[in-house]
């Protein structure tokens, strides 16, 4: 029987294991997308995160909750390799994001509250830049007209096709957010880290993001969502983690996250 080694996110082979057609050992449970063991991050003398242990399987969606300064953004930045852990061992799909960036980076993206847009580039130019940088092997051999057609199709999906020729500086915060979400669509990663995905969006924009995230989840993508919008985010995520002053203080079902926050608040006050 193939047993699932949760610590390393891999299957251990035993003498009685079945073998798949491809010769791989049959493994019924998905591998870990994220494995963090004792991960901490310090800025100067202040620990923004301490002793974080997390295992998130591929295809899971997890909600990160906590007050401002609780360590949500730091955790997301550690996961995507923008920060290096001060302590502990962090693995994404079995690889360390800092040591093996080319193993990890194509498989994840961060949708930050920053949009990473250039003020003077138009929406269409942004999309074409991202398409080029995504290094799709077919992109560079595709004729320019076909590239532009594809870019316009993508802009349609976020309702910006009428503003394709306008520079980002003329966009509202919500439009900038929608445009920045296209980057994720183009890169098509396995793990999507979202930092306040509903911020700066009007109700229609929030619905659009909710639908988009639901589609990603249905396609088996792993989602980690840091958000204060508990009502929307808890509908999308199965599990939740509550962070407080850089430590995990509660884990459970996303549907129970409000109860979790109350439990933690009660414990803190008593």
């Amino acid at each position: 029987m193939a047993s699932y080694d949760q610590r390393h996110g891999s299957c251990e082979m035993h003498s009685t294991d079945s073998i798949t057609a491809s010769g791989e050992p049959a493994c019924t449970q998905p591998a870990n997308a994220v494995t963090a063991r004792g991960v901490g991050r310090r800025f100067g003398r202040t620990w923004a995160l301490a002793h974080i242990d997390i295992e998130i399987k591929q295809g899971e969606s997890v909600l990160l909750v906590g007050h401002n300064g609780s360590g949500k953004t730091t955790l997301l930045r550690l996961l995507c390799g923008l920060l290096r852990p001060s302590t502990g061992d962090l693995r994404l799909f079995g690889s360390a994001p800092q040591q093996q960036p080319f193993e990890v980076r194509p498989r994840l993206t961060l949708v930050s509250h920053r949009t990473y847009l250039y003020e003077q580039l138009t929406a269409l130019e942004h999309v074409r830049l991202w398409m080029g940088l995504a290094m799709d092997s077919t992109y560079h051999s595709t004729p320019a007209e076909a590239q532009e057609r594809r870019a316009k199709e993508l802009l349609e999906t976020v309702g910006l096709e009428q503003r394709a020729a306008d520079p980002a500086v003329q966009f509202s915060a919500g439009m900038r957010k929608r445009l920045s979400l296209l980057r994720t669509q183009i890169e098509d990663p396995d793990l999507i880290l979202l930092d306040e995905p509903f911020s700066a969006l009007d109700p229609a924009g929030q619905d659009m993001v909710t639908d988009w995230l639901a589609q990603l989840r249905a396609r088996g993508k792993t989602l980690i969502v840091a958000s204060h919008a508990l009502e929307q985010a808890s509908k999308l995520c199965a599990k939740a983690i509550v962070l407080h002053t850089g430590q995990i203080v509660w884990r459970g079902a996303a549907a129970d996250v409000t109860a979790g926050l109350l439990t933690h608040a009660t414990k803190s006050n008593s």
Partner: peptide, 17 residues
Amino acid sequence: RLEREDSALEGLALVPI
């Protein structure tokens, strides 16, 4: 300075380039 607008350099660092 172009890359500091809206942390664009960070955005590029996230892309597998």
